[in-house]
Each structure stands twice: as structure tokens, then as C-alpha cells.
Simulated assay, not measured.
Amino acid sequence: MELIFLYRNFYNHKFGLVGAAVSLNLSWWIVVLAQFAYIIMGYCPDAWTGFSWGAFHDLGAFARLSIASAIMMCLEFWYYMLLVVLAGRLRNAQIAVAAISICNNLNGWEIMIFLGFNAAISVRISNELGAGRPRAAKFSILVVVMTSALIGVVFLVLVLALKDVYALPFTNNPEVAHQVSKLAVIFAFTLLLNSVQPVLTGVAVGAGWQWLVAYVNIACYYIVGLPLGFFLGSKLNMGVQGIWSGMISGVLLQTLILTGITLSTNWNKEANLADSRIKKWGGSAEYRVENSNTPKHGDVV
């Protein structure tokens, strides 16, 4: 809601595209600050006990994992943003950019659901592997992939059923609406694919494969997807459909690779590796012993 309010406020004051960008940044900062306030106000007693120098213990290991995850996520988000740049090089660029922006926006809404699955399976996989339960980890992957795929089928059916009208809340330009309608079939398949792909990425994060996924993203998105989209859209004059086809080809290739990695993984071995990582990155032994005597929430003192 704060995003809608800020966007309208800046838009009504004629700040245009710059105003929209500023409102988006402010909205994100509001979310970050609100979450931080929620934590420090005592609503997460098991996770937050106040500022402490202990937060800086073994910070290097945490930073290495965080940087790998950040690179992995940035490569994915930048990929979708670069589609808009490619669309700007097509004939009737305004219509092409508007059509791709509408589809990107709807795609972003759908991905919000599956980012929740992404975070959940990431935590579940890391917990199960850390606890030495590889069979539970495998079963969790099966359940969440099937659940997300079924939700993706619902979105696919909705787009196909509403292909002539789903762009209307975003535009009153009949040419843009027609262009979005022409993307309906491939866009519906995109939503189905993007219901599974974030889940597999979450599995990779939970298993500690961040750097591997970053390399996969570079190959699939920037070596295959973007060049193919440019070739189909500009050189073969397929327009927006060509650019989107190239994009979805990169996502499909990434999904197939992650599926292959997941299916071929020896989860017993991964559980052993997780145990090694806990010993290596779980904090210095001295600090763990020091804090092992600290009563935990719910303990009998």
C-alpha cells in the first residue's frame, strides 16, 4: 500500500519516471526499517538479544556466503531488467517496452509467492542436512516442488483464460493491450516455469551451492538467454515475442540444470558436508562454548 501511495504522490506531482524510481526506493526502505524495528522491539526474542560484539565473531565466513547469495540473486533480477533495455531497441519501442514491463510486473507479483517457498525450502533443507536427515531433505524438496507447480498451473490457466483482458488494469492503449495478449501463451508458460525455478534455487541455497548457481545463472542468462533474445527479437524481427522467448529459454535451461543437479545429488554426502560446514563456519569454538551455558528461551533455569 505504501508503494501505491508514494507512486501516486510523485506521479501526481509530475515527477514522472524519476518520481516512480524514488517512490520505489522509499517503499523498499520502509520495509527494511519496519522489519528492523519489529526485530529490535522484542518480537523476535530468540533471534535478537540486543547489540553485542559477538555479532562480529567469524564475520568473514558469513560474508562469503552472503556475497555469493547476493551475486546469485542480482544476476537473476538484472536479467529481467535487461529485457526492457533490449525492448527499447525494437521498432515501436514504446509499445514493446510497455508490453514487456506489464508482463514483468505480473511476473514479479507471482514470484513474490514463490520467493516465500524459496526461503522456506532453503531453511528446511539447511536444517535437515545440518541435523543429519538427508531423507527428510529429499522428501521436503518433493513436497514443495509439487505444491509450487500446482499453484503455477493455476496461474497458467488464469492467464490463458484472461488473455484478452489481463493487461487492461495497466494500460488504456489498445496496441499495448494487443501486444500483451499476443504474449499470453508464452507468458503463461513463464509463470509455470517461475513457480518451480525459485524453489530449486532455494534448495541450492539451503545446500550451500550459492557459487555454483551464480555460475549457472551467468551461463544460462547472459550467454544463452540474452543473446538469443536479442537475435530473435532484432535480427529475426520477432519483436517482443522473440525477446521473451530468448529470456524464457535461459530460465528453462537454468531450471533443467538445477533439476539435474538436485536429482543427481548424493544427499547423504551433503549431510556430511553440512556437518563439516557447521564445524568450520558455525562460529569459533571458544565463542560457542562461552555461549553454550546461556539459558535459551523456554529452558528451565
Score class of each variant (00 low, 15 high):
residue 1 M to L: 14
residue 2 E to I: 13
residue 3 L to A: 10
residue 8 R to Y: 08
residue 9 N to D: 12
residue 14 K to G: 07
residue 18 V to E: 13
residue 20 A to R: 09
residue 22 V to N: 06
residue 23 S to T: 01
residue 27 S to C: 09
residue 29 W to K: 04
residue 32 V to N: 09
residue 36 F to S: 05
residue 37 A to K: 02
residue 39 I to T: 11
residue 45 P to W: 00
residue 45 P to C: 01
residue 46 D to C: 03
residue 46 D to R: 04
residue 50 G to P: 00
residue 58 D to R: 09
residue 60 G to H: 11
residue 65 L to S: 12
residue 66 S to V: 03
residue 66 S to N: 12
residue 67 I to W: 01
residue 75 L to C: 08
residue 79 Y to K: 00
residue 81 M to G: 14
residue 87 A to N: 09
residue 90 L to P: 15
residue 94 Q to L: 13
residue 96 A to H: 07
residue 99 A to Y: 06
residue 101 S to G: 11
residue 102 I to E: 07
residue 106 L to E: 01
residue 109 W to C: 14
residue 111 I to W: 03
residue 111 I to L: 09
residue 112 M to N: 13
residue 121 I to Y: 01
residue 130 G to K: 02
residue 130 G to M: 03
residue 130 G to I: 08
residue 132 G to C: 10
residue 133 R to A: 15
residue 136 A to N: 15
residue 139 F to Q: 15
residue 144 V to M: 06
residue 147 T to N: 01
residue 149 A to T: 09
residue 152 G to N: 09
residue 153 V to Q: 03
residue 156 L to H: 12
residue 159 V to D: 01
residue 164 D to S: 08
residue 168 L to R: 10
residue 175 E to Q: 10
residue 179 Q to W: 03
residue 179 Q to R: 13
residue 179 Q to A: 15
residue 179 Q to F: 01
residue 185 V to I: 13
residue 186 I to C: 04
residue 187 F to D: 05
residue 189 F to Q: 12
residue 191 L to A: 03
residue 194 N to H: 04
residue 196 V to Q: 02
residue 197 Q to G: 02
residue 198 P to H: 04
residue 198 P to M: 05
residue 200 L to M: 01
residue 203 V to E: 02
residue 205 V to A: 08
residue 209 W to S: 00
residue 211 W to E: 04
residue 213 V to K: 02
residue 213 V to Q: 02
residue 215 Y to V: 15
residue 216 V to S: 07
residue 218 I to S: 06
residue 219 A to Y: 14
residue 226 L to R: 10
residue 226 L to Y: 00
residue 227 P to M: 04
residue 228 L to W: 01
residue 228 L to M: 12
residue 230 F to Q: 10
residue 231 F to P: 13
residue 238 M to D: 04
residue 240 V to R: 14
residue 240 V to P: 00
residue 244 W to M: 07
residue 246 G to W: 00
residue 247 M to K: 10
residue 248 I to R: 02
residue 253 L to K: 10
residue 253 L to W: 11
residue 256 L to D: 00
residue 260 G to I: 08
residue 262 T to P: 05
residue 262 T to H: 02
residue 263 L to W: 07
residue 263 L to T: 06
residue 268 N to C: 14
residue 271 A to S: 08
residue 273 L to R: 13
residue 274 A to I: 07
residue 276 S to V: 11
residue 276 S to H: 14
residue 277 R to Q: 07
residue 280 K to N: 12
residue 281 W to E: 09
residue 281 W to N: 13
residue 281 W to M: 10
residue 282 G to V: 03
residue 289 V to L: 15
residue 292 S to T: 07
residue 300 V to L: 11
residue 301 V to L: 13
